[in-house]
Simulated scan of single mutants.
Amino acid sequence: MTATDVKTGAQASAVFMPPLTSSVRTIGAHTFDFSRQVAVMAIVNRTPDSFYDGGRTFALDRAVEASLRAVAEGADWVDIGGAPFAPGLAVPVEEEAERVVPVVAALRAASDVVISVDTFHAEVARRGIEAGATVINDTTGLSDPELAHVVADSEATLVITHSLASPRTQYPRPHYDDVAAEIAAFLRERIERALSAGVPEERIVIDPGHDLNKNTLHSLELTRRLREIAEIGLPTLVALSNKDFIGETLDRSRAERLEGSLAAAVFCVTQGARIVRVHEVAQTVAAVRMTEAILGMREPAYTRHNMGDANE
């Protein structure tokens, strides 16, 4: 290893505090200062074929229970989806709305937690907002041009994610000449689209889309260079939890990726991520809160050890 290699590695691992243009965000009933805190977003999929749980929360009562459990475990945010990202048959808009809206309504009746709807359809977004959602999480980078207008006409926040394929279609052998630079350029262009549609900058969040039309090497490099995304200046969300780049890196099944997911989440926080989207809430909350404290963003819950006349 050369001195240049060592220097490059050190630069990649140094802590990066993102230059946010609007760090204080009010989302629904909650205000976040993303210069000093990281939000944990819990995933609840009301789908029979979800990537991680294989339909465990497809039933309405199970989805509501999972949402409330996530809140009890410390989630700041619950993301509710009714259609997978992965290639497959399209879920009709009406069916997707019927899956998502009752969960949003039930959770909103029970909690003031931030609720997002994971959808790329403007009509599902509209109904989700009416039911109490305060964020629309679009994993397709505004593939439906009307979605940004729906968000603009509300008080909701919009998550813009990088992906290249049309919704639910194959994108074999994705290629990037410079993965981080190309993702940053894509996100900047989509931000301009959202702004043109009337969504104010202080209601936009960005997500580089780990594994979405990216292979494992792309996702690892994107993680390593995440600061180039965070430098855009808007709060950066990372959706890393149990993804295939973690499984392939560690040779672990989807049920065995917790440690890798936590490591990736913590590293991304040190590189500027301010929202992490996860399946295992309690473990991630602990990891994120500890990372915040190490970075000086958060005070310990209490301090007793060696603080008095007698050692503890």
Rank of each mutant, 00 (worst) to 15 (best):
A29L: 09
P18W: 01
G9N: 09
Q37E: 14
Q11L: 14
A29V: 05
T31Y: 08
A29H: 11
R36K: 11
V6R: 10
F34N: 01
M17L: 01
S35F: 03
V6G: 00
P19D: 02
R36A: 10
S35M: 08
T4E: 04
R25T: 04
K7S: 15
R36F: 08
S13Y: 07
A12C: 00
T31M: 04
K7C: 11
I27G: 06
Q37H: 08
A29Q: 13
H30S: 13
V6P: 00
G28C: 03
V6L: 11
A14E: 09
F16N: 07
V6H: 06
K7R: 15
A10G: 07
A14H: 10
A12Y: 00
T2F: 00
V24D: 03
M17A: 02
M17C: 00
H30F: 04
T2K: 11
K7D: 14
S35R: 15
T4W: 05
F32A: 02
T21R: 14
M17G: 00
P19Q: 05
T21D: 06
S13Q: 12
S23H: 09
M17T: 06
S22G: 06
S13T: 11
Q37A: 10
T21Y: 08
A14C: 07
T4F: 01
D5Q: 08
F16K: 10
R25H: 12
T26K: 12
T21I: 13
P19T: 03
Q11V: 08
A29C: 05
T8M: 13
G9P: 00
D5C: 02
L20D: 03
D5T: 10
A12I: 00
S22R: 13
V6N: 04
V15S: 08
V24Q: 15
I27K: 11
F16L: 04
V24M: 11
Q37D: 07
K7P: 02
D5E: 11
T8N: 13
V6I: 10
P19G: 03
F32E: 01
S23P: 10
S23Y: 03
V24A: 12
P18G: 02
F32L: 05
A14S: 12
S13I: 12
A29I: 03
D33V: 00
P18Q: 04
A10R: 15
T26H: 07
F32R: 03
A29S: 14
P18V: 01
H30N: 12
I27V: 15
T2M: 08
T2L: 11
P18L: 04
S13G: 06
A3C: 13
S35C: 06
T21E: 10
V6Y: 08
R36S: 09
I27S: 05
S23L: 01
T31A: 06
Q37G: 09
V24L: 09
F16H: 13
S35T: 13
D5A: 09
R25Q: 09
T31F: 04
F34H: 06
S23R: 09
K7I: 15
D5L: 10
